[in-house]
Design a protein around this nucleic acid. Structure first.
Lengths: 223, 223
DNA sequence: ACAAAAGTGTTTCTAATACACCCATGG
DNA sequence: CCATGGGTGTATTAGAAACACTTTTGT
């Protein structure tokens, strides 16, 4: 009746949007167990490190992304006794959303890294299929009532780019006109920059930055 | 660069409704650290035990509640390096909602246990103030879009009793007539038993069981 | 009879949807 | 000029809010 020793890791569900798809970052494992298989990036929490610091450190190591530009939040803890054959490991999973797709960079214990489309349903090592599924569900749900969709966008973005985030993550179509009215009307969601762009073709579109709102009201509705 | 050993615990935010207040279960610590102070119930995860099993075991040990009658779900993990002065401890917090208030039962390492009204803002040991606040926020948020409110009710309950759950957890008043129409109209939320009760006074009220719905649509709105 | 709480009907207002239409650019 | 996407106006409809009113019990 003491306290058995555990190893504690952080694992990352890192999502981004390529041109046409919602993708997750995976790394090929360079060591046992599951050597050679694809898994979520992650690693052991260090002696004097907070969980969120460990998650941010791993994210920087595996992607080279500047920490400031990436949204990161805790997802859940996973600790089934047999989830790692080596020893008892509890992992705390984090969800990260990145605006663009920098070329993934291999970490110290990862031979390779790449983006996989989430609809490919590729099998991952450990219980990472489940963790990825939970991360996706969290991201999809939070788009409804939070400004999280802006985390997938560059610092300055158009309404159409924001709409494409919703359409790709939810795999639906949204009416461009009603969407425009809704997001420009939502208090504190968007901050106009005054500048415009024609990068999407057609009439120039206003460029916006994310506003200060933490909550999206009224919420977007998944059709 | 190995993997430093951690202790892993589960802590419980157990909420119930007394006659007039939303209350959380706390135990007085019988051992150091924080001996004699109030804390959330919890304990170490055993060698071959899943996290959720540990949470359910602790809940049964500290309350004597039959596991089937209590809603329990994972809340979050907390792992600041200095959160326990003895050693590096990561705790996985669970949120539990109980229908009535059985007399709390002292656990093995707890000298005493009691319900505290959440509005008392009583100070707890470790980082348990924060964990309790997170649990409250989770419960309040989930009432909006899930049938979670029924977890505070006895197996058979009236619409008025369900409404009182919302009013106490949210600390608001809801129109009894619109509330009635809304919850009886929500698909799969309530299952009529055909029986009635006059325990609330006045005209007899229909008794309901919780339905099979996992999601509440349309959601309840916090005013 | 009266108080008290359950439950229904109806009106008003807000917001989602659908879609016609105009605007501003590139080619 | 026309194609393309940005953005506005407006009618329809669903649901929230407010509240008058009826029902069924206990005392």
């Amino acid at each position: 009746m003491g306290h058995p020793p555990f190893a504690v890791t952080v694992d990352l569900v890192v999502l981004t949007l390529t041109g046409e798809e919602l993708c997750a970052l995976v790394v090929r494992r360079g060591i046992e167990p599951y050597r050679g298989e694809w898994a979520l990036p992650g690693g052991f929490v260090r002696e004097d490190e907070d969980l969120s610091d460990a998650a941010r450190r791993e994210l920087a190591e595996e992607t080279g992304l500047a920490p400031g530009t990436v949204h990161i939040e805790q997802l859940a803890a996973y600790g089934a006794p047999d989830r790692d054959p080596r020893m008892r490991v509890v992992t705390v999973a984090y969800l990260a959303l990145a605006p663009d797709l920098p070329v993934p960079r291999a970490g110290t214990d990862a031979a390779d890294a790449r983006w996989i489309p989430v609809r490919s349903r590729e099998h991952l090592a450990f219980d990472h299929d489940r963790i990825l599924a939970d991360g996706l569900e969290r991201a999809r749900a939070k788009l409804e009532y939070s400004p999280l969709a802006t985390a997938f966008c560059a610092p300055e973005f158009t309404v159409a780019e924001l709409r494409r985030v919703y359409e790709l993550v939810w795999d639906t179509r949204l009416d461009p006109r009603n969407f425009h009215r809704k997001v420009t009307g939502a208090e504190g969601l968007l901050e106009p920059t005054g500048r415009t762009t024609t990068r999407d073709g057609g009439r120039p579109a206003q460029l916006y930055r994310r506003g200060k709102a933490e909550l999206l009201y009224p919420p977007m509705l998944r059709s």
